Amino acid sequence: MTENTHTPAEGIEPSHRPMPTVRQITTNDVVDALAAGIRDFRKAPVYGLVIGAFYAVGGLLIILTASALGMTYLSYPLAAGFALIGPFAAVGLYEVSRRQEIGAPLSWSAILGTMWDQKGRELSWMAFVVLFVQIMWMYQVRLLLAVFMGFQSFASFGEFVSEIFGTPEGLMFLAIGHVVGAILSVVLFSLTVISFPLLLEQDRDFITAMITSVKAVVTSPVPMIGWAAIVTVTLILSIAPGFLGLIVTLPVLGHTTWHLYRKCVEPEHAA
């Protein structure tokens, strides 16, 4: 369907390829990447809007499912956890930015074809990493609920919110839950921020991709954690109005992440 443009650099044996070279970046690089991300979105808005809308609908379905099953108290953690799988939705956005970068034509067959091709590649293994963190996230929510709130049930989401903000136990649950959630988010961010675009462009194993991603964060902790904070705040604000904000913000974040990857990792050249 589409040309294969995601192969190892010619002349380099996969088993003997060196680790990707990570550059140190600054806050200005993050600002430049954000500007480039907005520019990519404006050049090809239809792809971003459709992918963002698909993701927003997915979030709404998750919350509606929780309500239908009588587990409205899980709506907030489910919404937060759903944001963790954003990189998968962004794969198509990375491809849009990559094609704009090299002057390749844009079409739905090319974008969707690239996304479909990832099902049998290393990026699929990243699904297990994200899923594991998602399970840990939900498990710690249930555990903390049992510790601080007991095994009581809530008739509605409003009753759950009243209990959380109106009792010392609820406030403690909220505080510790957010601390644990922040730690899990930083871990997942470090493992995935560079690995997803790296796996899309280069024929690497997912372990190498995760190591490179963590190295990028460790090499430039201030700008990278700053970017993580921007992503977190943006997603929270986008989820608040019924996930509708994601229709615009997700594409911009996705395109920006591609350009941030470009600034963090040296291009792979033929030997």
Rank of each mutant, 00 (worst) to 15 (best):
E13V: 13
E13F: 12
E13I: 12
P14V: 15
S15V: 14
H16I: 07
H16M: 11
P20I: 14
P20K: 14
R23S: 14
R23V: 11
R23G: 10
Q24K: 15
I25G: 05
T26Q: 11
T26A: 13
T27W: 11
T27C: 09
D29G: 07
V30T: 08
V30D: 05
V30E: 04
D32W: 03
L34A: 15
L34Q: 10
A35R: 15
A35D: 13
A36M: 09
A36F: 03
I38R: 04
R39N: 09
F41E: 09
R42V: 13
R42C: 04
K43N: 14
A44R: 05
A44T: 10
Y47E: 11
Y47L: 10
G48W: 00
I51V: 11
I51H: 02
G52C: 07
A53D: 00
A56F: 06
A56I: 04
A56G: 06
G58D: 05
G58E: 04
L60M: 15
L61E: 10
L61H: 01
I62D: 09
I63H: 09
T65I: 00
A66K: 12
A66I: 09
S67F: 06
S67C: 01
G70R: 05
M71C: 00
L74S: 07
L74R: 06
S75I: 05
S75A: 14
P77Q: 08
L78C: 10
A79P: 12
A79G: 15
A80N: 09
A80C: 13
G81W: 04
G81M: 07
F82W: 10
L84D: 10
P87H: 12
F88W: 08
F88P: 05
A90H: 11
V91P: 00
V91W: 11
V91D: 12
G92D: 12
E95F: 08
V96E: 02
V96M: 03
S97Y: 05
R98C: 00
R98G: 01
R99W: 10
Q100M: 02
G103H: 03
G103D: 08
A104E: 12
A104T: 06
L106K: 06
L106S: 07
L106H: 08
S107H: 06
S107G: 10
W108T: 05
W108K: 00
S109N: 11
S109Q: 13
A110H: 13
A110S: 14
I111M: 04
I111V: 11
I111P: 02
L112I: 13
L112P: 06
T114S: 15
M115F: 07
D117W: 04
D117C: 01
Q118R: 08
K119T: 11
G120Q: 09
R121S: 04
L123D: 03
L123K: 01
L123C: 01
W125S: 13
A127N: 04
V129F: 03
V130N: 03
L131K: 08
F132H: 04
Q134V: 13
M136T: 07
M138L: 14
Y139K: 04
Y139F: 13
Y139I: 13
Y139A: 15
